[in-house]
Design a protein around this nucleic acid. Structure first.
Length: 271
DNA sequence: ACTGGCTCCTGAGGGC
DNA sequence: TGCCCTCAGGAGCCAG
């Protein structure tokens, strides 16, 4: 399940294969993703040269001279670069062939992902415009979070998973960051002190940076652009460890659903 | 303005 | 071995 580190890992993996190589063929094998893939996407891409692959939140932006392809991996999406003639796999939905023969294949069993095209600057796109700060950028601060959270009664976990608060904090890293910061996931966002928000911001930064260095968390089906799994899963402190002992105090971690999401925390270390 | 619930989809895993 | 059931989840959307 791609979260920000997985998307960044994918970006780094595909960018060198894409930039500067014209698209010679674009095929949409199954355009029925979360939103229908634009009918004219292949026409937009053919003969055009990717200039850069960027990331905003969990969106990948493939930039061309005349516009940008916006790609979201959803829950189970992956992009792979194929350099030989390996056959299409089940759930390969989109394939771009590049000058030189490389192919970029988008695979997504659950089809929660999406592809968009925009001629305008991508930051103006309806999906990107409302997004909050990047977690690894200087505009993401504990003080900013603190002020934004005043009066908010939603659980802190839901608050930090809201992309208007900060982007790229999905369920796994929300659980991990709250554990690291010692904050109970169900505590009302408006009842967390400024000092604890500073700690939480550090925790989110640390955990996302570490996960990026490790090539992303591998749970179920994440593979990077070479089809290889990441190695961060073994570093997780709480996610997926419900009932097992807390690394700090040894008591069993609690596993409950919070807002339709699996939530694991230590009832003793997190208040 | 907030908040919580619903929804899309497939594959994994458990029970029998 | 195989079938059926439940669950997992990103994030936009909608109702209250």
């Amino acid at each position: 399940m791609p979260e920000l580190p997985e998307v960044e890992t994918t970006r780094r993996g595909i960018e060198p294969h894409l930039t500067g190589r014209a698209v010679t063929e674009a095929r949409v094998l199954n355009g029925s993703l979360r939103w229908p893939v634009p009918e004219d996407l292949p026409d937009k891409l053919i003969s055009q040269i990717p200039r850069a692959v960027e990331r905003r939140a969990k969106y990948l932006l493939i930039r061309f001279d005349h516009g940008t392809a916006i790609v979201h991996l959803g829950m189970s999406g992956s992009l792979r670069v194929i350099t030989d003639d390996s056959p299409l796999m089940k759930h390969d939905h989109i394939e771009l062939t590049l000058e030189g023969g490389q192919r970029l294949r988008y695979n997504d069993p659950r089809r929660f992902g999406s592809w968009h095209w925009t001629d305008a600057p991508p930051e103006h796109h309806a999906l990107l415009a409302p997004l909050g700060p990047e977690p690894l950028s200087p505009d993401f601060t504990g003080d900013g979070l603190y002020h934004r959270s005043r009066g908010r009664r939603m659980p802190i976990k839901a608050f930090i998973m809201d992309s208007r608060t900060v982007v790229g904090v999905g369920n796994i890293y929300a659980c991990e960051a709250l554990f690291m910061a010692g904050i109970h996931p169900q505590r009302a966002a408006g009842r967390v002190s400024q000092e604890r928000y500073r700690r939480l911001v550090s925790a989110i930064r640390d955990i996302l940076s570490a996960a990026i260095l490790d090539g992303g968390t591998t749970l179920r089906d994440f593979v990077n652009s070479e089809g290889k799994p990441g190695y961060f899963a073994q570093s997780l402190s709480v996610y997926g460890r419900g009932g097992e002992p807390c690394h700090h105090c040894g008591r069993p971690l609690r596993d409950r659903r919070l807002g339709q999401r699996a939530t694991v925390y230590c009832p003793r270390c997190q208040r």
